[in-house]
Amino acid sequence: MRLDQKLIAQMIAPGSRVLDIGSGDGSLIDHLFRERGCDARGIEIDMQEVTRSVAHGLPVVHGDADHDLAHYPDESFDYVVLQRTLQAVERPREVLRQMLRIGRHAIVSFPNFGHWELRLKLLTNGRMPNTTVWNTPWFATPNIHPCTIRDFLALCSDELYRVIDWMAIDEEGERAPWRRSIRLANLFGEQALFLLGRNEPACRDGGRK
């Protein structure tokens, strides 16, 4: 399991119901079931990963964040997790809404486009930056909706989401030290991890079908 998945697992209360969107090889849901006694399930778009997960006895369905979340009932999970995928979905705002409709909490990690290396490369080369995190050319990248940590916070504020916890993490998934200042985190954090909740679930109109 990646280091940032360990950080995610630590955010999740033992024994809770978890949906992991983009569950990959299923290591997070496997960990949550075995170590934390969670009812953890996955959605994965890559059929080979799905087959591998199910063949390991993990409850994973083939599907994706954009099209399959609408079919889950309200509050069917305590936590809905989206790892390193938000920047690649068709409608990130709608996906977040769905996550916080079907889950009481959302855990979201994404690569931070505000990292200094990207800023510097764009400034000096005048071309789309290429780094270890952002390593596909612009015409081939699946990352159609990149954002910075500050962009994400602005969206959370627009949508009235409660930021319960957040942290910057480096590419290895190690927790980075930029906790006190969002601006510093936005400059030096390669990835970001957020634990979100709804502010006033009853007051949000349109949130329920």
């Binding site: 087959t51 199910v54 993990l58 409850p59 369905v61 599907g63 079919h71 889950y72 009932p73």
Partner: peptide
């Protein structure tokens, strides 16, 4: 079927075999 089971909050695995 899978989407219906999801609506029913059932524990579902779903695989399409090539």
């Amino acid at each position: 079927l899978v989407r219906a089971l999801n609506r029913a909050a059932a524990n579902v695995s779903f695989v399409e075999i090539d």
